[in-house]
Amino acid sequence: MSQLIQLAANGQASIVADAWIRVVPPAAGEESVRKQAGKVVLFKLTGEQTYTAEQIANTEIPATGKILVPLTIWQARKAELQSRLAAGELGIVLATNETAEALQAEFTDLNTLPLIAVFVERFADGRIFTLGNWLRTRFGFKNELRAIGDVLRDQLFFHKRAGFNSFLIRADRSAEDALASLNDFSQPYQGGVADVPVWRRVNRA
């Protein structure tokens, strides 16, 4: 059973097969993990480089199919990925400590990417919402915007309103159950990426 929920243009949600292969760098060598003991979290959350040069070099990239690649891998190995981009087979993963500007610097027109995914390591990291909002409203991204990582049903309504239109539910949870949470509220107060504040939406007088 697929873990991927997708919203159609009309807002209808369904569980669909995932056509994308996620490219994940190999785990860091034991040595470097040990050296960073106790500091790993700090590095990631303060925006330090997540992957080492060794990890990036050793990342295996499938030769065929649609691939979803971390921004840092693209930055380091874009020459070999260029043809995949041209073929519409490249999607980029942005981590929550990376910026939409960094992505923009790589792709002048973000809409050459059929898919951007934002990876959230812990569900409580609310930066994913601002990133989604920025990508949609500031950078004009129109294609599929996917939440991946620690994605749970109780945050889905916020993800949706922050501009995400697909959600890869964490492997140990039911995507089927999660569908219900996309419609927790029928008439939210404030605007979201796709709507305006309620007082501009309906006549409350």
Binding site: F123, A124, D125, G126, F129, T130, N133, Q155, F157, F158, K160, R161, A162, F185, P188, Y189, Q190, G192, P197, V198
Partner: peptide
């Protein structure tokens, strides 16, 4: 109060 209630972007601040 209404604007901040279930604000989708600020649901999980630092």
């Amino acid at each position: 109060r209404q604007w901040s209630t279930f604000h989708p972007e600020f649901a999980l601040l630092p």
